[in-house]
Design a protein around this nucleic acid. Structure first.
Lengths: 205, 205
DNA sequence: TAGATTGTTAATCGATTAACAATC
DNA sequence: TAGATTGTTAATCGATTAACAATC
């Protein structure tokens, strides 16, 4: 696990709360409030902020607008982040239509699939043949790919992506994909998460 | 984070590798092999196994069949685990059709949605009105729920579920849901994972 | 036996938390 | 000022890793 990964994931979650508070018309927030909202301690919140140089007022808490801006800056959200997706199956198409990404300046600009029948160039988000993926990545300077292909295809697709310049992967397949050191992979293993829940239900303490 | 959560998530990942090795006809595996497959150290693998009383042979490694059985036992996978899903939107329907769950003895038995137009009682996995959820949970002794509803509905749906007996939740909504202490929540925050990737791409070291 | 691998202990590392001085 | 909150340090906690005796 890269250093401070949890802290960075928490920044995303603080941001969600902050947007909601802003919608409610609030302007300031205390570390205690943010702590409650994501179930951590207030010292954790202050620590997280101090890691990334995010400052408050000794007595007046933190300004919400400032916090949102700072967090977006840290997370690199000041510009649109274009990503591609491999796999136009059920999951891929669900992700294609997922509104949550737009809200955080992430845009899926193209989907790639090996099945010619799935290709659809005139779709709002075009579905293109897998053979065109490498060139697309290079031409559009894509650095992030989402893997939503079947297990057996995952490793090969990943290698194509990395070969063309991708530096970060969000992997929805169950496969434990192999990548060079400079590439970052985050896995979304839904079965594993459920198995984990089952474990804690069966073994409470 | 509950204790040993990472270890338990790793068990799921070892299991994936083990099934593949078994398919290849292998019968034994060393801690070194498993370590390589999920990018951890071999002492981590042995430690994980020792936490859960999983044993090998001092020189001959571990028997794959035994490992799979033991891990399934620890993870409570010796019986079918029925779960329900709230939200028949794009994501919900994608999850409904997701084959990965079947492979690990997890079955979505019903989906609930507030929109009457989405109700479909004769579907292979029935889509039922949200009002029927509580009763369904009680009648079928469901203890696990998946949240795939829009943000603003999440907290309420969660409370209905918990009120009816649900003890574990897999939360796909961005909301930081609040639950009593005895309920376990695992969050799948896809935006946060992507933001995390973006951070490490922008800040390599 | 000699060599190799487990199981476990002890060391290390990093993340979380408590505590409190600084300060508004 | 008195009270409250930040920012930071030090303590604690837990997870990972190295090392090696046990042993097959």
């Amino acid at each position: 696990m890269p250093k401070n990964q949890n802290a960075i994931l928490r920044l995303s979650r603080y941001k969600n709360t902050l947007y909601k508070l802003k919608t409610l018309g609030l302007e300031k927030v205390f570390s205690d409030n943010l702590a409650d909202s994501i179930h951590v301690k207030s010292s954790q919140v202050r620590k997280d902020f101090s890691i990334f140089g995010i400052e408050g007022h000794r007595k007046g808490g933190y300004e919400i607008n400032y916090l949102i801006n700072k967090i977006n800056e840290v997370l690199g959200k000041t510009k649109m982040n274009n990503v591609i997706l491999a796999g136009a199956g059920k999951l891929g198409r669900a992700l294609m239509g997922y509104k949550g990404f737009n809200q955080v300046n992430i845009k899926i600009t193209a989907i790639f699939d090996i099945d010619p029948e799935k290709v659809k160039r005139d779709s709002p988000v075009p579905v293109l043949p897998l053979e065109e993926m490498k060139e697309y990545i290079k031409n559009n300077h894509i650095v992030i790919g989402i893997i939503a292909v079947p297990e057996e295809a995952a490793q090969l697709v990943v290698e194509h992506m990395i070969g063309a310049g991708v530096k970060g992967l969000l992997n929805f397949s169950t496969t434990n994909i192999k990548v060079p050191d400079h590439v970052i992979v985050n896995n979304v293993h839904m079965e594993a998460e459920l198995e984990n829940i089952i474990y804690y239900i069966n073994n409470p303490e």
